[in-house]
Design a protein around this nucleic acid. Sequence first.
RNA 1: UGGGAUAUAGCCAAGUCGGUAAGGCAGCGGACUUUGACUCCGUCAUGCGCAGGUUCGAGUCCUGCUAUCCCAGCCA
Length: 557
Amino acid sequence: MTNDAKPVPSHFIKNIINEDLKNNKNDGRVHTRFPPEPNGYLHIGHAKSICLNFGLADEYNGLCNLRYDDTNPIKEDVEYVESIQEDVRWLGFDWEDRLYYASDYFLQMYEYAEELIKADKAYVCDLSAEEIRQTRGTLKEPGKESPYRNRSSEESLDLFRRMRAGEFKEGERVLRAKIDMMSPNMNMRDPVLYRISYAAHHRTGTEWCIYPMYDYAHPLSDAYEGITHSICTLEFEDHRPLYDWTLDALNYQPHPQQIEFARLNLTNTVMSKRLLRQLVETGAVDGWDDPRMPTISGLRRRGYTPEAIRDFCDRIGVAKSNSVVDIAMLEYCIREDLKFKASRVMGVLNPLKVVITNYPEEGIPELTAENNPENADMGYRPLQFSREIFIEREDFMEDPPKKFFRLAPGREVRLKYAFIIKCEDVIRDEKTGEIVELHCTYDPQSRSGQDVSGKKVKGTLHWVSVDHAVPAEVRLYDHLYLQDEGDEAGEAELNPDSRIILEAMVEPSLAEAHHGDTFQFLRHGYFCVDLDTQKGKKLIFNRIVSLRDTWAKMQQK
RNA sequence: UGGGAUAUAGCCAAGUCGGUAAGGCAGCGGACUUUGACUCCGUCAUGCGCAGGUUCGAGUCCUGCUAUCCCAGCCA
């Protein structure tokens, strides 16, 4: 499209790949994967990983797989596997025919485990979960070896086969790697490789009653798929020795390399699946795709575009330091993208009626509005002016400060795409004293595009014709402001101002808008149409993001 | 003296063999403007967690500290 090639940001993972390529490691192949567990909806943090993995494959002429890490049946569901594919596709990435499931490899993994047992590198342990926990030691003290650690390979193999055959109850036995109970790395203290679970798996049903643990399944899945660079987040750094151990134990080749990077954090929001789930389950939000949610589906419904999200992921970079990205960066990206795509239209969120007292009896011919001054290809549309219009209540001040450029008694402003008007009279409600109406005169010489009035005004207002206006629901969103208590119990509390619903008046052309269309309401920001089909196609606009407002900023000072 | 990792501006982040601190977001000042938007121009680290050392020269190398994050699931 554009030729201004955006400089592709460099980062440490590319340095590693470049080095590997130079040494002809992996025969010059680059093969990555995005490996979500289907236990929830994808969020913007996953988008970072998706863009990284698929982006790297793209850039190095390699491949990227989509693989479900579905090794824990009790947490997983087909609802999630479907939403994940939809979201990855929507973001603009294509795994082609490489859609895999760790559960596809259960048999291979099982056979590998038998080999491990025969090689005396794994054993069946009869300790209870509680006993294993107690003998694991602490961060500062070494663990104790299980009394079952040294039983014969034959006995372990027999027990393991019987585990698979369903002869034991959940929790009765596990398969453990025989590594080192004295290791300073907790993950190496004879980690559990297989546990018994009779829960139905969303794909394999009841075919299996033993399931591999992440640390065992992940390196094998990567190896089976010929992954060269297995990119994951920082908390798995301590697991890397186990990742390598699993593949090295039987000298398994190829040997993918695990590389860790820092997960995304955003100011004023929360990325924890636990907290997001809580919002959904308590009904604090309307669902995983509520426009307030940082989920991909929430952002999509809010009106974010895949282009904006990908641009964001490029801009934030990839590194190993825990960081919190300012949400202003995301907001910048969506403004930047919508700037050329969204039609500029007029909507009044808090209407104040204006009567044009010198409006001619014969009426005024149709006006013309430019759909997007930054993108001439988007064309023009007709616009109706009339004797009565609505303007934004906050665009009128009876006693304005010096720098107020909008309407005030005796002042003149331009109505966007239309005429210059002058405020002649302020009409109040007799009882409450509230301003209910403004009486203005218009200057017929000042018509937009053919202004011969010679007037110069500082302010331009947006407006809608009372006769033609279409009522619409407008939803304004604030940040989530969730408190993450960190540990288990933490109750997530939603910012009460996170959604404000207004009854607004919008210009008539919007009556035909489609679900998902994006617009810029002049001065109010970018909005996305979210048609409520339940309520007979009621027009709902989600505000994606506001415009930068230097006037509001001035007032705050 | 458990182990692993990280530290460059308000935020994110480049910085390959040591050669004199990219870029973006936010901010600030100004120009322009029929969106107080957009755009444009200018500005924003004598400084790289701290303290020493090596060197003609250190964000990069060495030594010693400090702070923060992760790890004791039969979760991923």
